[in-house]
Write a protein that binds this DNA or RNA. Structure first.
Lengths: 234, 234
DNA sequence: CACCGATGTATCTATGCGGACACAACGTCG
DNA sequence: CGACGTTGTGTCCGCATAGATACATCGGTG
């Protein structure tokens, strides 16, 4: 089976901070010295020291290093370094979300465009989606399952009162609960749209296979990519 | 300024396909031969050929290579290779979404947990969010702006009829239109939640600075990360 | 049957990354 | 003032990546 992965990076100017660098900073924070961090990571001191100097020359102070003294000295992280780690963690978490959550794909052609937003005619009907300028018809539209909202058919909000631009009526085709999270398949015009719900929401809506539901998602959560292939995917 | 980036990968078994490999396959598809692809990419033929063989030995047939013949032979991609490219494109598009879209962050502590879902007490109130087992209080909760739905205060759907678990009343604090897409800042209890809307939705809801709105998002679209830092971020 | 243009394959080399190691510098403490 | 545990620096080596080159192979075509 094919698995989606990534490597996160943070760029500051022309410097690029990778997961390795963050790991390095964390080790320094944990141990209080470069040499102990090197030992803890099983890497050479020389390399760590050089990398720290290189990073600091590119993106400014990250550590306060001190040599000599009662304890022989040591290295501590600056606030800037802590912030960097925090930012990296958030990015990593978000990207992990993307690779974890599954996605529904619909083929179609772009009919209307205004700026970055376009309307794509698909098998389940028109989808308002984010269509970058560079993408060309035919396209595939991807919808993240964690962006799909389910409502009871009659409970769907008035179109003039919400910012959700895509709404489709369908039937629940599959329910798969796991660890407080429920994956739901919604069959719309013979095609499946997948949604991710909390178990609580699922019981609250009282969803079961065969029930009618209204699935909706924001245009900004749907993304179109040019469809280069002739064959189907997955 | 610091920019978020990534490198996408697809793993099949123990093989990992990178952007470079996809570029390679695309060049083969475009030119019809390994040697022409190598020239087109400005890389050595030997390396390309080796990489193709390596990839195929790990993940199965990707090309039909033929030598001899009127044209001397050539190389074409199999459907499997096309599918691989398509999958990669989708992943790339989604990840790009993450790094492009901005995110609101709230600090808080986890109070209730059931499976992967937890309740985080924050400055804007309780947030139901995805809290991986490994994450510990205190946490920071990140909410992608493209997952935030805005409604008119009175138009918000009945809580029993929707799968959105987080809903907050606030006031529009900023509106920034660009290229058919509107970034909106919503002030909730003195803290800002950012939302991404289509220009159309924005005019439909008739949003302007100072207007009251109801902002909501799904629990599965909010992610918590342990808050290691003492300092604030960004 | 030689030619051509492509694919296979082997070998050599340049480059960069990172570990290993040696040694200097530093500042407090006994 | 010497010991100690750090940081700072330079040099060497092993390894992996990838270009350069050379040569064999294949199969139509003139």
């Amino acid at each position: 089976m094919t698995e989606r992965g990534f490597e996160a990076t943070l760029s500051i100017g022309d410097a690029t901070v990778t997961a390795k660098d963050i790991e390095l900073l964390r080790a320094i924070d944990r141990t209080g010295s470069l040499s102990a961090a090197a030992a803890s990571l099983g890497r050479s001191y020389a390399h760590l020291q050089r990398r720290v100097v290189e990073l600091e020359s590119e993106i400014g102070s990250l550590t306060t290093r001190q040599r000599g003294g009662a304890d022989g000295g040591g290295t501590a992280l600056t606030d800037r370094a802590h912030q960097l780690c925090a930012r990296f963690d958030r990015l990593h978490a978000e990207l992990t979300g993307v690779t974890t959550v599954d996605e529904s794909v619909f083929h179609g052609t772009v009919t209307v465009r205004s700026g970055q937003i376009g309307t794509v005619e698909t098998d389940i009907g028109p989808i308002r989606a984010l269509v970058p300028e560079t993408e060309r018809t035919p396209v595939r539209v991807g919808v993240r399952s964690d962006a799909v909202v389910l409502d009871t058919p009659d409970g769907a909000a008035n179109e003039n009162e919400t910012s959700r631009r895509n709404s489709y009526d369908g039937k629940v085709s599959s329910v798969d609960t796991q660890d407080g999270i429920v994956r739901i398949g919604v069959s719309i015009n013979g095609h499946e749209l997948r949604a991710l719900l909390t178990a609580e929401s699922c019981t609250r809506l009282d969803l079961a296979v065969g029930d009618p539901v209204c699935a909706s998602f924001k245009a900004t959560a749907a993304r179109a990519v040019t469809d280069r292939s002739t064959a189907d995917n997955r």
